[in-house]
Amino acid sequence: MTEAHRPTGRITVLVTSPRVAPGLLTRAAWQSLETAGEIAAAGGPERADVQAVIGSGLTVTKVEGGVGEHWSWLSSAAEAGRAVAWLVGDDGEPDLLHVVAAQVAREPRPPYEVEIVHGSYDVPGARLIDLVRVMDRIRRDCAWTQQETHESLAKYLLEETYETLEALDTGDRAHLREELGDLLLQVALNSRIAEEDPDDGFTIDDVAAGIVEKLVRRHPHVFGTVDATDVATVEANWEAIKATEKQRSSVLEGIPLALPALALADKVLGRAAKLLPTDAPQPNPTTEAERIGGDLLSTVREARAHGVDAEQALRTAVAALADQVRAAEKT
């Protein structure tokens, strides 16, 4: 056969997301696999994506070795005029893709076609699957993490919460993103530990399912047929639904007493407003501490009247004072 009549080979590199079920490939991806003369991968049937392709009735060749051997197999097959497809592994095989890109860009052009096909794409929230996988491995293989319990992690959960608030105060977006990640870590680790409870275990999927169901249930104006066009109506509906769900004996039930004092006062005043008039007489103070406490409570009441978060307002004022102190230190 002369060079002019030699069939043109083709290399198809199939890139898929490890966060999507292995068999859920695009139509273009399945067509590429079905029209390929041979399909190959760096792993065998132990790989979920290889299993999915084999399960569809196709054959997958396992190619041993490293990047050099993999590229040699692909280029040799293509130079011989064969159409071959390569299933990229979960790690994305960046070294192989780098070689493919370099070879395609070289001059003279190789005597075969090369294409990269995306067989599946990440959906929003897909990286949360990575977090679950990583956390599972760390819990199994890290000696420090293995000894942690819900109780031992409590201090870190509180610490990360305050660090997240600090990031909000500074307005540093990169810092906020990092601290939200640290806070999410606490949710993931506590959920992973909860799986191990033999009597009352739950998973992070159960945690997510619970909050999704609650959000849908408490937003009938979004997911149902209830008409709520203003914030006040939305809040009233939320509180009514919540009261029906909780069946509490007191409006104060559910308020965590460990809240910072101003935030606690704001919560209690909000619940109390359902039963007591805003101008209800206050007890006469008998000590300076009681007087100051009453003044602080009045300040929180005033903040609520103006739609101001008293806790955040004080945090902002303290931060401004800290800036003044630092400036004074430099003079």
Rank of each mutant, 00 (worst) to 15 (best):
A154S: 14
R139D: 00
L33V: 10
A105S: 14
G44R: 05
E79L: 04
P281R: 12
T287D: 09
D309E: 01
Q312L: 15
P7L: 09
L97A: 00
P22H: 01
A102D: 13
R291M: 11
A261N: 05
R137S: 13
I116H: 05
L97N: 03
W30P: 05
G9D: 00
Y121C: 07
G23N: 02
D230H: 02
L262D: 08
D197E: 09
Q312K: 06
P94G: 07
P94E: 04
I211D: 00
P283R: 11
E151Y: 12
E79V: 05
V84E: 00
E213P: 00
R137V: 13
D227Y: 12
H150L: 14
L321V: 14
G65C: 04
A236T: 14
Q186W: 03
L165R: 10
L153F: 08
P220M: 08
V88K: 02
A261Y: 10
A240V: 04
A85G: 01
R217F: 12
T145I: 15
E290V: 01
D141F: 07
L24N: 10
A4T: 13
D279I: 02
A21V: 08
A258V: 07
G44Q: 04
D90M: 06
R173W: 13
D197Q: 09
V13T: 03
E93W: 13
V226N: 07
V100Q: 03
E195H: 08
L264K: 03
I193N: 06
Q282C: 08
T161L: 12
M135K: 04
D197P: 04
P256F: 12
Q282G: 01
A313D: 12
Y162C: 11
